[in-house]
Design a binder for these strands. Structure first.
Lengths: 333, 333
DNA sequence: ATTGGCACTCCAGGCTACCGAGTGCTAGCG
DNA sequence: CGCTAGCACTCGGTAGCCTGGAGTGCCAAT
């Protein structure tokens, strides 16, 4: 553990580096508020901090830069999660006050909100439809053996998928299928649908099964939304880094598992190499689950350079996750 | 109009520049196949081509670079739209052979396909739902005054939107509303829904109207999908250009109007400044409408640096638009 | 224990020189 | 008359050199 003075110095280095983006030297720190010693002392302390892995020097006789470990200490012990600044919080408020419409749309917009407020890339993972309760099911023929199966869930989302029916069926019989499903399914969930009573008509039963199967498959997917990827181009000036990061951002499954992984480890911040996704070593991730009635229904997060304003980003993600949860739980705000 | 020799030289310059990305000098051209004269003659001709605006010099004593006009001449007269190379065409074929599922998903995947094959950003604009015929409508209550209204259209897409009902309604009465809509709407389109017979129950009628209104609004939107934005980071090495282009790509409405605009002018290629979107002067756009039964239902396109392989890109977009159209028209391939 | 002072390091930026790719022009050739 | 070989010239990029400044580490003094 670091003594008070080292702590103060580390804090000052991180804060300075976050705003200036260039290595910070002992004299700056000596002048910083909260540090009451001379630059020589600061130099000594910084040498120690470097040995212990909190700081690094790009090269001899340059200033110091925080390491991942330095940032980690900063967010764990020094980043007072202070309140969101007024303008940002108004922006978030205004958004959730005026937001309306479908879940998907809402999540997508949330992504833009986060990106705008934090100036970082944002990622929102939506709820799996699996566990939501079915309110209504319907099968609509589209000619030939193709049909669309639609389910309205209790959380207001609509799952739909095209299916290839095992046998061709008249519109009339399809409505009978709809009616059959509509009668027995509502109230159960898509991952564990209630068993349908067999009707004795094998075609009929096969169509029902196909429809259910198809719904269960789509419902297993987690919808992911990414926004503000362009901000990554602003965060780095090495064009190679930008390329790598953008490429990775396009692979949504990487993002999803990244987010899940961080949450599983009980973290809300993963810094640089901590998250283990190689192309994103220069990035940190901040995630927060979204709860509705104590149940996790999704995740919101931002992804930016390790050199990011953690307190602000943490506060933003926190507020957004909270507002989003409230919004989803009662439908108003 | 350019004589044969100038034409050959221009072609050679464009081709060389497309592959090397650096200004091309007279000696390279003199050695190119199809040019049978000495470098001195090439120099003279290039001077003329420069005066006429087909070529430009980054600075005195550098090689020549094609101007927008040069590219334009190239695509109009020199870019033999030759067949798609085998590997690419197999990739496209494999994609459409195995693709299945919802329209949205299909369009989204198409975006990735295009991006992969061309190594450029891809944009796909989907059909408006407005003009599709309604097959089924349903209103499902979600508690309180909110409800979800769902419409299945003849093209297999599903439109859904949450609505705030003018009055609270029991589930039972909502099914009555559904039945009412279901009875009268199928067969008409969302932009011009058939007039519903008044029932005399003003609440009932108001709810119907609200549902219809909401559907009409969502149906007016054109779904846009963008993919492969990261390739822009590979296309340019000025990080500023990357920033600008990425920012613009995130503003989907700009893209939509860009695409529409180019099509309206009867073009399939817009080069550099031609398309009038300032931040994208360094980019060219290739678009192709997607037809189903002679009716345009969408647009596919790619967006890359002006220095792009036009024949290959044109061929790819052409094939994809054609396959997509076929896919959408009969549902199989 | 802290600090002022000092010698040292190393990068960034400005300057110069040079190389090479490329041009434009002209004189000569078929 | 059109083409080409040759030549002088231009100019950007790279390498080398220097210098100023920000920063460090260490030591001796307080």
């Amino acid at each position: 553990m670091l003594d008070e003075r080292k702590t103060a110095i580390l804090r000052a280095v991180v804060q300075e580096y976050i705003t200036t983006a260039s290595p910070v030297g002992s004299t700056h720190i000596a002048n910083a508020p909260g540090v009451k010693v001379s630059s020589a002392t600061v130099r000594n302390e910084m040498a120690v901090l470097e040995q212990e892995g909190y700081l690094a020097q790009p090269h001899t006789s340059a200033g110091r830069v925080p390491t991942d470990r330095g940032y980690r200490f900063f967010v764990d012990h020094l980043a007072a999660p202070g309140p969101l600044d007024l303008q940002a919080s108004q922006q978030v408020g205004a958004f959730f006050d005026s937001a309306h419409g479908r879940l998907e749309e809402l999540l997508h917009q949330t992504t833009n909100l986060l990106a705008q407020v934090t100036h970082h890339a944002a990622v929102v993972v939506g709820p799996r439809a699996e566990t939501a309760v079915v309110r209504s099911v319907q099968v609509v023929g589209l000619g030939g053996r193709t049909a669309t199966v639609v389910a309205v869930l209790s959380n207001g989302t609509v799952e739909n998928e095209q299916v290839e029916l095992p046998v061709e069926m008249s519109e009339l019989r399809l409505s009978a299928v709809s009616a059959h499903l509509q009668k027995h399914l509502p109230g159960s969930t898509l991952d564990a649908p209630r068993d349908l009573p067999a009707t004795g008509d094998s075609d009929f039963d096969a169509v029902c099964a196909a429809a259910m199967q198809s719904l269960a498959t789509t419902a297993a997917a987690e919808p992911v939304f990414v926004g503000g990827a362009a901000s990554m181009a602003r965060a780095f000036d090495a064009v190679d880094t930008v390329r790598e990061v953008l490429n990775t951002l396009e692979q949504q499954f990487v993002l999803v598992s990244l987010v899940r992984d961080v949450l599983n480890r009980g973290l809300s911040v993963a810094i640089g190499a901590e998250h283990g996704v190689a192309p994103l070593v220069a990035c940190s991730v901040i995630v927060k689950p979204v709860f509705v009635d104590g149940e996790q229904v999704g995740t919101v997060g931002v992804l930016g350079p390790t050199r990011m304003d953690y307190p602000q980003a943490l506060a933003t993600v926190e507020v957004v996750s909270e507002r989003l949860g409230r919004r989803l739980s009662d439908g108003s705000n």
